[in-house]
């Protein structure tokens, strides 16, 4: 590779291209947020509730965002800074980017995904493959979101303030339980059989982290429900995650 390609990948024009797209998405988020807020006010929703949703979501998102920042740093050594910044701010997913970048670099004929092996043509090819492989969520949304939601919600739609939940609400809760169960099960499976069936030599750190995080959440729930400290609800998930992550540091694996 030309020794300056990594520097070129972090040059002002590339920052402007990527930064422009990030700014566009930030504006989209603000527009959707303002519209939703106004609609909530117009239909008589409690402003305190909406404020709580915003505060809790903001505090909730900080730690995962730091994890995502680490992904940007990890990829910046081979793809420069602006591209991973764009990818992980918009559309990308932490687990997706590294895998696809790796596979795309192999397809582009690089011996490995690294700054020293990167060429300008390989980069633009890798960048296109990374973009093209993950666009389907957006395409499906454009084509089918309206019809799909209309079909699902058309018959059982409820008005705001209606208390009685139908099966749709229960099903969404159950789906989330299924999602958490799949991930917790995978941590257990990795520990028990990750290094060979029933050897119990796999990593137990994710299990310990999940357990500490769950215990911390139990403590915050107790404070909220038994001691009437409702304000802790706004930060309980973020604080529990932080304690879980600190446990990982303490375990040191």
């Amino acid at each position: 590779m030309d020794g300056s390609v990594l520097a070129q990948l972090s040059s002002a024009p590339i920052y402007m291209i990527c930064g422009g797209i990030v700014a566009f998405v930030a504006v989209v988020c603000v527009v959707f947020m303002v519209r939703a807020w106004r609609a909530g006010v117009a239909i008589g929703m409690d402003r305190t509730k909406m404020k709580r949703a915003v505060t809790a979501s903001a505090s909730f998102s900080v730690l995962p965002s730091l994890g995502i920042l680490l992904g940007v740093i990890a990829l910046s050594g081979s793809l420069g800074v602006p591209w991973p910044w764009l990818r992980l701010s918009v559309i990308g997913a932490l687990h997706y980017e590294t895998q696809v970048a790796d596979a795309a670099s192999e397809a582009a004929g690089l011996p490995e995904l690294s700054g020293s092996a990167m060429t300008a043509e390989a980069f633009s090819t890798i960048a296109l493959l990374m973009s093209a492989c993950i666009v389907w969520g957006m395409i499906l949304s454009v084509l089918f979101n309206k019809k799909y939601l209309h079909r699902l919600q058309g018959q059982g739609e409820k008005k705001p303030g209606e208390k009685k939940g139908g099966f749709g609400d229960i099903a969404m809760g159950a789906m989330f339980i299924g999602m958490v169960s799949a991930y917790l099960g995978s941590y257990l499976g990795d520990f028990a059989s990750g290094e060979g069936l029933f050897t119990f030599r796999g990593s137990w750190t994710p299990l310990a982290v999940a357990a500490v995080s769950a215990l911390a959440m139990a403590g915050f729930t107790w404070l909220s429900e038994k001691k009437n400290l409702r304000w802790v609800d706004n930060f309980s998930i973020a604080a529990s995650m932080l304690l879980g992550m600190l446990a990982a540091v303490a375990v040191g694996r």
């Binding site: 999940a210 500490v212 998930i237």
Partner: peptide, 13 residues
């Protein structure tokens, strides 16, 4: 280890 375990911490809570 902390940043490698964001998702387990999330799903634990």
């Amino acid at each position: 280890p902390a940043f490698a375990n964001v998702v387990p911490a999330l799903f634990g809570a």
